[in-house]
Nucleic acid binder design. Structure first.
Length: 326
DNA sequence: CCCGGATCCTGCTGGC
DNA sequence: TGCCAGCAGGATCCGG
């Protein structure tokens, strides 16, 4: 499942293979692939055709390609537009030269025909997505609230409008760690739920959440407001470290659903400590890793290293109307 | 505003 | 051998 390291691997591949290319033609093979697009397929293709891809940018699991040469008579003062992609659970972006006939993948959802660069011939960029949770959209950019670059891969201080509410990720130099720690501790919820909340900190999915919790020796149901600042810092460091290591290894791959932009799978999954390791010994203490349902998903943990907290988060009672501010 | 559960979707797997 | 329930889990929507 693509999380931050996998999406970054894709972003890097796109940066090396599609920038400076003009979109010559757009094929949408399945309309729902652009379901987030106002104006549906015609607007998607219309806003994309003829544009040049100028940067590949990522924030958390969101990915976008900046579009040069804005549409004629576009609104003044708008920072620009982007082709935004989210890979969902199973999305892939595959780049292929045109020397050989394009592969008609059964889960091909959209195909962009991209023109040549000074150095290389035209290519085809395929969006393939078996489980169809991913999508593509052409969107307007909005300025970042803090004036810092919108994400990794470009100095432009703007993000796609649908990404504006997504928090910065743990590898973002502009992330305000102190604010993040304070916000996380102010939550009244389970720690893993907070780690998965993309509006709090982005890029972490089910796999790296479990790995980070194991490294920090914390239980997924640990109440966020029972953690010290140091404890929160430790689990955030663990998440940052495990994602950095996965990135170095080329991203995690499961069941061949994820491959990088050139079609080669990552191999970091061999290094996972707990995720998918039910019944196998904890690499630290030897206790048998367990799988438990949590948030309608699976959570994997070591029952000895990651003890269940004594109390669950106290349920927040509805605020009294008299104390509620508008 | 904050929280948490339901929902979307497809294909594979395992039990009977 | 065939059928079907269960499972995988991103983001978003909506009720409380």
């Amino acid at each position: 499942m693509p999380e931050l390291p996998e999406v970054e691997t894709v972003r890097d591949g796109l940066a090396r293979h599609v920038l400076g290319r003009r979109v010559e033609a757009v094929e949408v093979r399945r309309d729902s692939a652009v379901r987030r697009q106002a104006g549906a397929v015609p607007e998607f293709a219309g806003r994309l055709t003829g544009r040049t891809l100028s940067a590949a940018v990522r924030r958390g699991k969101f990915l976008w390609l900046l579009l040069d040469e804005p549409a004629v008579d576009g609104p003044i003062g708008v920072p620009g537009e982007a082709l935004q992609a989210h890979l969902g659970m199973s999305g892939q972006l595959l780049v292929r030269g045109t020397a050989t006939p394009p592969v008609e993948h059964p889960h091909l959802r959209a195909r962009l025909h991209l023109g040549p660069t000074a150095d290389a011939g035209p290519v085809v960029l395929d969006f393939v997505d078996q489980r169809t949770f991913g999508h593509l959209t052409v969107v307007d950019l909005v300025p970042t609230a803090d004036g810092a670059p919108g994400g990794y891969g470009s100095a432009v201080a703007a993000v796609p409008e649908p990404v504006a509410h997504i928090a910065r990720d743990l590898l973002d130099p502009a992330l305000d760690r102190a604010v993040l720690v304070a916000r996380l501790r102010a939550r009244r919820t389970d720690l893993k739920r907070a780690l998965l909340d993309q509006t709090l900190v982005s890029g972490i999915g089910n796999i790296y959440a479990d790995e980070a919790l194991w490294r920090a020796r914390l239980h997924y149901a640990r109440p966020t407001d029972s953690l010290s600042g140091a404890g929160v810092g430790a689990v955030l460091d663990a998440a940052r470290d495990v994602m950095t290591e996965a990135l170095r290894a080329g991203g995690t791959s499961f069941d061949a659903l994820y491959v990088n932009v050139n079609g080669s799978s990552g191999y970091f999954d061999r290094s996972l400590a707990v995720y998918g390791q039910e019944g196998r010994p904890c690499g630290r203490c030897g206790a048998v890793v367990v799988r438990e349902p949590f948030m309608n998903r699976s959570s994997f943990r070591c029952p000895r290293c990651q003890r269940r907290p004594r109390r669950s988060p106290e349920r927040r009672t509805t605020a009294h109307p008299a104390t509620r501010r508008t």
